[in-house]
Design a protein around this nucleic acid. Structure first.
Length: 1073
RNA sequence: GGGCCUAUAGCUCAGACGGUUAGAGCACCACACUGAUAAUGUGGGGGUCAGAGGUUCAAGUCCUCUUAGGCCCA
């Protein structure tokens, strides 16, 4: 037993290579071997980093937030994160791969709140921030073990021991450094911003959280009101009323302005003694109140109204500076609903805030963090804003409470609309202004766009599409959250506005310098988390009275600030490894799903631009979204996707890898996960590869042959099939290398699938006999190709190729091997082209047999192949003869007289690409003529079609052959030329056909008897006269093919009854010799 | 409402520069082949290339609009 030379199979070593492998079991054994052998570490360390890391390929792991188990999306990304580094490693690069964990943020806090059954931030404070943050820490670490299991099982090589976590003090110190650096560059400021806000959870939500679930937007019924505000500007409009419409009546006490569109047409109409102003386009919608043909007393545009002042609907902020004016907001005002005039409540809407800022109006905030009204809105104080709506409407109707006289309620109704709800508590959100610190992204946006030009995006359209557009519209980034579990905002402020001072810290050392100590947690370790960092206070140095204190602002940083910092924070830059970082930035490669264009890709790019004036990464694959088997988002409750562990156990990690990597998802499309698709990967790729290996081992073992992979014999065969395979392998490796260099992983899979098809369904099938004969050059060739293919496919099927390659070579690991050198393989494009033509010849001949009802085992006399260059096929006539089972193959030149004799007619086809530009419109005439037969060839060879002379190159003339004549059948070849099959069945041929049928019957009997391929047999054949005759004539053939050492022909023999030839009956008996 | 992507066989997708008979894999049917194969080969059915208009001698391909889906933004 020579093969497998090494196997991880602890079972019977003498069993050889299994013909029907159980891939998941093989995978488990390979994984165990890797773990024991520490192959991953060896593969990294086998490559030298080079001077200043010039030989390193830098990969950044985008940190997942591990608050649940990995799903297909994570696995998909993980496979890409494995393939590219594996490939680069084999190309000779040193590729460190550190796993990263995103640990901070609201999801962790919410999980901790759920586990501790608390609902509000007050309860968190009550519980103790230290205890709460301990709970957060525990919750984010809860799944790390499972993640490691899944990632290991999927055969992703990544360093878990030397990982990074965003909550580690070193990481957080680098984050502080980043904040301080931005502050020092003048790129950080404190401001006030409107965000979606959950009053129940007492937290603003990021856009990301807003869209956490599909059902965040739910239909909701809200009251909607149309209210008129009285104009106070002296002049023609005095006393008229501007009509506004809102679905949030509770924002009316905070009204600060009315927005109009400058170019929108407005009218004033007379109604019950009032003049009401609204958009002309909205008159119809108010017919109920205003009548079908209201009396229009004024017409104009929004620009005519701008600057008018009005009495605010409520008197709470009556003296507010610069407020209660009609202002322009062309981008925000439409006439699709409402009145064409929009009320602006400053801090309760994004557009509202933008407009009031522009107009220099300070926002007001009479709503507390719990969503209840506060001072000065006395009538509704303590009421949740939604609960206050009916009271506010009642007061508007009766002009009661603090409603300003002159304000009128024109209409009240209920309004159904899609409204955002908190993804966690399902309560309706409000928009609310909150204090926040910002990175002034707008200041360096143009530089971000410039640096984006240096990034290679896959797919390419992301660069100027989704990512580029997002950059163009970048707004300042709100980086603080009024929460608990996160990196602290390293800002200390004086608590007395009379003595203002702000200190920003960028390191432990700076903190220790000013506070005399480090923030220490309960275990006495330096810890930048709350509450420890909050404990650091000191007297305000700028306060001569000594009474005011420097206190940290209570916010923590947005988690995206953490993950955007990973490139430098994972190595504790600039406190350690500053030199290393300098040579490893930007990173060479990152990959995540397309949504990260506004997440991780974006925050990495923002911070890299602002801090280093460089992009953070050179190449980025941005893949699509994985969908369930029904085309919808994967959902646990719908059970619309196969269980990950079940797939690992049943089909294996390589099958799943192939399915995902070969799919359109890496070109930016979406992917529907189906079990069928995963099984197809096994069938189309893994089994062909494995069976080629099994085939090799079967015959090499039978022969006791050991191939010398890598030796001079490997590529030395002169056999045409071997030379063809080697040349084809070279083409394959060249193509694959180019594709992987381009990150075109799906293309690489398709290329591989096509190559394996040639390998197994042409080379191996056509070479069976030579292997059976034990031909050394065949073994050497196939071994060399298997070695090459294993190495080339190793990144795409790391587990399967490992088992095959080690079994073939006895080496330590295919992943320690070098990427195959295509240039070492013979190049012979002509040979490859000739073989492709040979396959066409066989294909065409098979079709003729099929049409003529001539079964394949029946030998035929001859096949004539008529092609342009018959010499190129000379080496392959025996292959053709064997493949299509004919006695002789004749090659004829297409222009030879004899070939002409087969021709029935000629066909003219016009090459439109060549003739079109010259002939213009007439080319259509020529084409039509060529099809209808209205063309001719003159004596001198001039071709005329439809009366138009064609010049050389504008047409091709082909000989067309008929389907059948007596005793022959003819068929066209796709690339030009044709084949002529001699269909005459002589008695000799018929007899040999029967003999072949007998061989087949005996082989089946051998199998049925469970004989080994090398077992010798005693064979007895009986049957009709024709059968006995064939068995006698072809005794040599039959006994050789079936390994019969004893060969008996006995008319009366009993045995398995089979039908052979043209309805003849035979009996065969097979006994092991 | 805006931006990007997608729309080709029952399914999943290819289709440089526009070139006149639009391909592949899977699935289906028939036949053949099979001592490596869970296969394979041959043939067959299956297409208004989402729709409409335009440019052109010629459009699946280029332009405009529309429709549907996805992603993002508002």
């Amino acid at each position: 037993m020579t093969y497998p030379r090494v196997s991880n199979d602890s079972a019977d070593k003498t069993a050889g290579v299994p013909s029907s492998p159980r891939f998941p079991e093989i995978e488990e054994r390979v994984l165990a071997y890797w773990a024991e052998d520490d192959t991953f570490r060896a593969s990294v360390e086998a490559r030298d980093a080079g001077t200043d890391g010039e030989n390193e390929f830098v990969f950044y792991d985008g940190p997942p937030f591990a608050n649940g188990l990995p799903h297909y999306g994570h696995l998909l990304t993980g496979y890409v994160k494995d393939i590219v580094p594996r490939y680069q490693t084999m190309r000779g690069k040193r590729v460190e791969r550190r796993f990263g964990w995103d640990t901070h943020g609201l999801p962790a806090e919410l999980e901790a709140m759920r586990l501790n059954d608390i609902k509000t931030t007050d309860e968190i404070v009550e519980m103790g921030i230290d205890k709460f943050n301990d709970a957060c820490r525990a919750s984010v670490l809860k799944y790390t073990g499972e993640w490691r299991d899944y990632v290991t099982r999927q055969a992703r090589w990544v360093d878990f021991d030397n990982d990074y976590k965003t909550m580690n003090p070193e990481f957080m110190e680098s984050v502080l450094w980043a904040f301080k650096s931005l502050f020092d560059k003048g790129l950080v400021y404190e401001g006030f911003r409107v965000l979606p806000y959950c009053w129940n959870d007492e937290t603003p939500l990021s856009n990301h959280e807003l869209r956490m679930d599909d059902d965040v937007y739910q239909d909701r019924q809200d009251p909607s009101v149309t209210v008129g505000f009285e104009i106070t500007t002296e002049g023609p409009f005095a006393g008229a009323k501007v009509l506004i419409w809102t679905t949030t009546p509770w924002t009316l006490p905070s009204n600060l302005a009315v927005m109009v569109g400058s170019d929108i047409d407005y009218v004033a109409v007379q109604h019950d003694g009032d003049r009401l102003i609204l958009a002309e386009a909205r008159l119809g919608a108010y017919a109920r109140e205003l009548g079908d043909e209201p009396e229009v007393v004024w017409r104009g545009q929004g620009s005519d109204l701008i600057g008018l002042t009005y009495a605010p609907p409520f008197s709470y902020f009556a003296d507010h500076a610069r407020a209660f004016r009609v202002v322009a907001a062309d981008e925000a005002v439409t006439t699709t609903d409402g009145t064409g005039l929009v009320h602006s409540a400053g801090a309760f809407g994004e557009v509202d805030k933008e407009v009031t800022d522009r107009e220099g109006i300070e926002p007001v905030m009479p709503v507390g963090k719990d969503g209840r009204f506060t001072h000065p809105v006395a009538e509704y104080a303590g009421m949740l804003v939604f609960d206050a709506n009916p009271h506010i409407i009642d007061d508007l109707k009766s002009t009661g409470g603090s409603v300003t006289p002159g304000t009128v309620l024109v209409r009240r109704e209920t309004y159904n609309h899609s409204y955002p709800h908190c993804w966690r508590c399902r309560e309706p959100l409000i928009y609310k202004g909150v204090e926040s610190w910002f990175v002034e992204v707008t200041k360096f946006k143009s530089r971000m766009l410039e640096l984006n030009e240096q990034i290679r995006w896959v797919p390419e359209h992301i660069k100027h599409g989704q990512f580029g557009k997002w950059l163009e519209n970048a707004r300042d980034w709100s980086i603080t959250r009024n929460r608990f579990w996160g990196s602290p905002v390293p800002v200390w402020k004086s608590d007395d506005p009379a003595y203002p001072r702000i200190d920003v810290y960028g390191s432990f050392a700076e903190i220790e310098r000013d506070f005399g100590r480090l923030p220490l947690n309960a275990d006495g370790e330096p810890d930048l988390h709350r509450p420890w960092v909050d404990d650091l206070t000191r007297p305000n140095p700028d306060d001569p009275t000594g009474r005011s204190t420097m206190r940290r602002v209570s916010d923590v940083l947005d988690v995206w600030f953490d993950s955007g910092s990973m490139s430098f924070a994972q190595v504790h830059y600039p406190f350690e490894d500053a030199d290393w970082f300098d040579h490893h930035f930007p990173g060479d490669f990152i990959v995540e799903y397309i949504g990260q264009t506004r997440g991780w890709f974006y925050t990495m790019h923002v911070l890299a631009t602002a801090l280093f004036d460089r992009p953070a990464f050179s190449s980025c694959i941005s893949h699509g979204i994985v969908l369930g088997s029904d085309g919808n988002k994967m959902s646990k409750s719908l059970r619309n996707y196969p269980d990950v562990r079940e797939v690992f156990d049943r089909d294996g990690a390589d099958a799943m890898r192939w399915f995902l990597m070969a799919s359109p998802i890496l070109r930016g499309g979406n992917l529907v996960v189906t079990e069928q698709g995963i099984r197809d990967a096994v069938r189309q790729v893994m089994i062909p590869l494995w069976n080629t290996w099994y085939f090799f081992s079967l015959y090499a073992n039978a022969e006791g042959y050991e191939a010398k992979v890598g030796g001079p014999e490997s590529l030395a065969s002169t056999d045409p099939l071997d030379r063809y395979l080697l040349a084809k392998t070279r083409q394959y490796v060249e193509k694959l290398t180019a594709e992987l260099d381009d990150y075109a992983i799906a293309d690489a899979c398709e290329t591989t699938r096509g190559f394996l098809d040639v390998l197994t369904n042409w080379y191996v099938r056509r070479s069976r006999e030579r292997f059976w004969e034990g031909r050394a050059e065949a073994f050497e060739t196939l071994a060399a190709v298997l070695d090459t293919v294993c190495r080339a496919v190793a990144p795409l099927l790391p587990l399967t190729t490992e088992e095959v390659w080690r079994g073939l070579t006895g080496g330590r690991s295919v992943h320690l091997a070098d990427w195959p050198d295509a240039s070492a393989l013979p190049t012979d494009d002509a040979l490859v082209a000739a073989m492709d033509q040979v396959r066409e010849v066989c294909s065409a001949t098979s079709a003729l047999r099929k049409a003529g009802g001539l079964r394949n085992r029946l030998p035929l006399g001859s096949l004539t192949v008529v092609v342009a260059d018959p010499a190129s096929l000379e080496d392959f006539t025996s292959i053709v003869a064997d493949e299509v089972n004919v006695k002789h193959v004749r090659l004829l030149a297409a222009d030879s007289p004899e070939a002409g004799a087969y021709g029935i007619s000629q066909r003219l086809s016009v090459n439109a690409r060549a003739a079109g530009p010259r002939l213009g419109k007439d080319v259509q005439v020529a084409i039509k003529a060529s099809k209808s037969g209205d063309w001719s060839v003159a004596e001198d060879g001039t071709v005329t079609a439809g009366g138009l002379a064609l010049v050389e190159g504008e047409y091709t003339l082909e000989t067309v052959v008929g389907s059948e004549t007596d005793g022959t059948a003819t068929g066209m070849l796709p690339g030009g030329g044709f084949v002529v099959l001699d269909t005459v069945v002589t008695p000799e041929l018929a007899e040999e056909g029967i003999a072949r049928d007998l061989v087949r019957a005996v082989q089946q009997a051998r199998r049925d008897a469970d004989l080994d391929v090398t077992d010798r047999i005693v064979l007895t054949i009986g049957g009709s006269t024709a059968v006995l005759g064939a068995a006698g004539t072809h005794e040599d053939l039959i006994s050789k093919e079936t390994l019969a050492t004893s060969y008996v022909i006995d008319e009366a023999a009993e045995g398995t009854v089979v039908t052979v030839g043209d309805g003849e009956t035979a009996t065969v008996t097979v006994v092991r010799a």
